[in-house]
């Protein structure tokens, strides 16, 4: 399948045209954020003006990288995705409040996030868990970081510049979810395995 090339910031029309199973190659700025960033944004609710990066139309990457300070800048060593489900209780609000168009991570997310994606025009972009060197090589530059002291380098919000960064749409803005489909199918198989004596 031919991947679709997308430039960030994403437009609502780009995002609504995507379907579960589409391969995409992203170029432009990507902002990272994981557990601490989500908890902070959701609880403290800082306005857009107090966050140094523009999240509107943006892609939020669930990633806690290995990153080194070098020559006045930062060098990325490894930067694969982290499990997205842990921020399920916060994500719907972030999508709505900050106008995010892409949530990128691994493992997929739940119904609340899926609903927010449909309402606001946002998709879930699945990257390959553990492919940390492969993905780090597709991040061209670390532009800046926020909350590095407070949250530590692994949990700070980083601004990356990516080029042809690969991902797979697994939750789309029409309410489709590969994760829901796989869970439903595997539930049927589980029921067979749980019959007395097994399958």
């Amino acid at each position: 399948m031919e991947p679709k090339r997308l430039k960030i910031p994403l437009r609502e029309g780009d995002v609504r045209a995507l379907n579960v199973g589409d391969l995409v190659l992203l170029s432009g700025p990507v902002v990272s954020g994981r557990d601490r960033v989500h908890k902070f944004l959701f609880n403290e609710r800082p306005g857009r003006e107090s966050i140094p990066f523009d999240l509107s139309g943006g892609v939020l990457y669930h990633c806690g990288p290995i990153i080194r300070r070098e020559d006045g800048g930062y060098r990325l060593i490894a930067a694969g995705p982290t499990t997205s489900q842990r921020v399920e209780i916060y994500e719907w609000w972030l999508i709505r409040e900050y106008g995010l168009r892409g949530i990128m991570g691994k493992g997929g997310m739940g119904e609340r996030t899926l609903r927010a994606m449909k309402e606001s025009g946002c998709v879930y972009l699945h990257t390959i868990g553990g492919a940390a060197v492969y993905l780090a090589e597709r991040i061209k530059r670390v532009v800046d970081g926020w909350m590095i002291e407070e949250f530590g380098a692994a949990e700070a919000m980083w601004l990356f510049e990516v080029e042809d960064f690969p991902a797979i749409v697994t939750m789309d803005a029409r309410g489709g979810s590969l994760h829901r489909a796989v869970a439903e199918e595997s539930r049927k198989r589980l029921v067979e395995l749980l019959r007395p004596g097994g399958a």
């Binding site: 990633c63 806690g64 990288p65 490894a78 694969g80 982290t82 868990g129 553990g130 940390a132 060197v133």
Partner: peptide, 9 residues
Amino acid sequence: RSRPICQDT
């Protein structure tokens, strides 16, 4: 490249 396979060590 002698770099960690996954960023989560």
